[in-house]
Design a binder for these strands. Structure first.
Lengths: 354, 354
DNA sequence: ATAGCATGCACACACGATTGCGCGATGGGG
DNA sequence: CCCCATCGCGCAATCGTGTGTGCATGCTAT
């Protein structure tokens, strides 16, 4: 059964002209009333405003954008593939930060993904060169990202959440991931561990590179060795954690502590260990990153580096809007502080309550 | 230090006129080339297309929208407060479903939240009456939602993810939540439980109401009683689960099985039980809803009703776009099938591997 | 009394695209 | 050979809003 639900765009549209006619003034006067132009008399202003109210006038944003050359819209450009991101709590918090700030500042958020692999440039061109958005927040902080090339070539307002070496003057918000990984690793060292592994993410991501560096530095400074079989690269998925765990536990010489690049991956590690009958933290201690809400609800709760996810998004949005509106920025790179949240997954001393 | 990064919107804009001039044709011809008008010669078409390529032409979407009265944009209207939603995995999957389909169909997604409490109508009016979007996906399926009133009064393309009684002809995608809760409860009954509780969400949400009904029906059919102290209402937060668990375990007569409205809440219950030294499923069996990715990674893995979250979003987007483009729909309400995923949290028979 | 200025508003054009209509050129059939 | 259909394209109006300019009017100052 086909049902006809709407009658062909019959929705009547109250324009500025209709208001003008009803108020007995010119369209320009109505426009100036809306924008609070000083040279409009109190009387006309009130009358026009009343009529706008009565007739239910809402300015056409498209017409407005056309002449003002601004859309009051930002785009969040998702990396490809985006599946991992969506599966991570991390993303929701980030989004919440971005949305809170941009909504407050009167900007709308466009959530953008490439239509097909390798189509990012095409997609962004359409938005950016087609003047659909005023600015872009990039979540794809890969090395040598052609998107960043393109945006910076066009001098388009862009803020990167992450890091890039190739474009020093692009705005970015990031953590000190090197130090964060150092702190996580150092924490395990302080707990007495000498065999510490690292479950990383895709090596093309700067965040994975940075955390790797911090991990290595901590070991080096402590005079410990980073054995290559204790370092595993994967994705930001639980399966990666599970696989990494299987591999590590099959080694003749196993690590006793593990730094894991993401909480979700950490969940995979933890679950695998539990299934195999190992105890955390006794058999293997775990520290991971991002401190998603469920980390503290794991059994045992997972120690994690809180990277200020909400703040990351909030700040990115704030920087971008400031850049668009004022065309100046105070700093081109802002580092959100991190902090280690210690939980049972990495504390052997803690009495077990079960 | 203030740094001037951009030189005042200097970004040159290639318009249809520029192309026309360079190609020695009229703007209308260029426009027709873009839209593949049949009455344009192969020769001119190719020449114009080559020049567009050379000069890097991208049509101005605002101008296009102004005349075509269509924006190729949909809005996802978030409920208030949105905090809970963002903290739930559920949301990411839903978003992924919506985005995948709408991107495929050539629509952009606007993520919209009210600027301040009670501002939903204002916010949506601006978007809808200001012709900023072509359609709206509503996530707020409260009872008596004034937003739905407003949208349906204006006959604006809308799809609701959830249910409403007040507006029978509004399009919606939903689960059979009553049956889903029935299935969850029935599963516990089959496991031999006779004292079964229900941890619900805000009673104003239709999803909470529906699941409550299914829970009650299952008990009634089995000749079991739903004691009021075994039914607790809360939010979609882990804390709610924790509190509900504390309360239930303090009762003189405790439930032995628990149906929980959301996995995240279930995590809270589970964690609380573990901390207090109770065993799941032996002391208390748990079945929850949504089957987020981490459910199977809990210790023990949580039984959950998979509601086809991705499919929910995908279908909503598909319905909406079809309504916009064809103005007809095959069905005004689509039910996404659910299925119970049984895991250790509700199976006493399963041998424990630890 | 009149020049001068501030005030309040309308006219007209612009933003960048789409599209109905019309006009010249071409070609084929009677 | 002429008429008419078809083809290929340009002209001009239009979408709804913003804004520079100009023209009245009324008030102040000399």
């Amino acid at each position: 059964m086909h049902t006809r639900l709407r009658d062909g765009g019959s929705m009547i549209m109250v324009t500025i002209k209709d208001i003008a006619k009803a108020a007995g003034v010119s369209p320009s006067t109505v426009s100036r009333v809306v924008s609070n132009h000083p040279r409009i008399s109190k009387a006309t202003s009130q009358k026009v405003k009343r009529i706008m109210e009565e007739m239910g006038y809402h300015p056409n944003m498209m017409a407005k954008s056309l002449v003002s050359k601004t859309t009051q819209t930002l785009s969040i450009m998702l990396p490809r593939p985006a599946e991992e991101l969506f599966q991570d709590f991390f993303f929701g918090e980030l989004l919440r930060g971005i949305l809170t700030q941009s909504t407050r500042a009167g900007y709308d958020m466009l959530l953008t993904a490439a239509t097909s692999p390798g189509d990012e440039i095409e997609t962004v061109s359409r938005l950016v060169l087609g003047r659909r958005v005023d600015g872009v927040i990039l979540l794809s902080s890969r090395v040598n990202d052609p998107l960043i090339d393109m945006l910076s070539k066009h001098d388009f307002p862009t803020v990167l959440i992450g890091r890039t070496d190739d474009h020093p003057n692009i705005l970015s918000v990031d953590n000190n991931n090197e130090q964060a990984a150092y702190d996580a690793t150092h924490h395990l060292i302080l707990q007495g561990h000498e065999r510490i592994g690292f479950v990383s993410g895709p090596p093309s991501l700067t965040v994975a590179q940075d955390r790797m560096k911090g991990y290595r530095r901590a070991l080096r400074e402590a005079g410990l060795q980073a054995r290559s079989e204790w370092i595993v690269e994967g994705e930001f998925l639980q399966q990666s954690g599970y696989r990494a765990m299987s591999f590590m536990m099959s080694l003749p010489e196993r690590p006793s502590g593990l730094v894991v690049i993401d909480d979700v991956v950490g969940f995979g590690v933890l679950r695998g260990l539990t299934e195999l009958g190992y105890s955390v933290p006794d058999d293997l201690s775990i520290v991971s990153f991002n401190n998603i809400a469920l980390s503290e609800l794991a059994t045992p709760p997972i120690s994690s580096i809180d990277i200020g996810t909400y703040q990351l998004g909030y700040t990115a949005s704030q920087m971008l809007i400031r850049l668009i509106q004022e065309e100046t920025v105070h700093q081109s790179r802002i580092i959100i502080p991190h902090r280690l949240i210690v939980r049972e997954s990495s504390i052997q001393a803690l009495p077990k309550r079960s």
